[in-house]
């Protein structure tokens, strides 16, 4: 199980949880697992095509998965994944 960290902006749709443990061998599977657990997150994370929104960044152990293998980036059981949408507040 890898740990998925959710920022405050996503937490309302995840029963207020900051981090959830999700199984999955790739980023795509982990994100699917998150959405399965908390269906209200689907519209915040995924577009109509089922892919991640371009405004949601995913970091695997601090590294942007866009520069790894994107959604197909392999995920190990002790990895930490961060879902991070842009925020604009100032």
């Amino acid at each position: 199980m890898s740990t998925v960290r959710l920022p405050a902006v996503l937490r309302a749709q995840a029963d207020g949880q900051k981090a959830i443990d999700v199984a999955g061998g790739t980023i795509r599977e982990v994100v699917a697992g998150v959405v399965e657990r908390h269906p209200a997150l689907a519209s915040q994370l995924l577009g109509p095509d089922g892919d991640l929104h371009r405004f949601v960044n995913v970091y695997l152990n601090g590294q942007d998965v866009r520069y790894l293998a994107g959604l197909e980036t392999p995920v190990g059981p002790t990895d930490e994944i961060r879902l991070l949408p842009a925020i604009a507040g100032g």
């Binding site: 902006v9 519209s43 915040q44 929104h53 371009r54 405004f55 949601v56 960044n57 949408p85 842009a86 925020i87 604009a88």
Partner: peptide
């Protein structure tokens, strides 16, 4: 951030 979220999500 190549694109911004829609206002209701941010």
């Amino acid at each position: 951030y190549p694109t911004p979220p829609p206002p209701e999500l941010a």
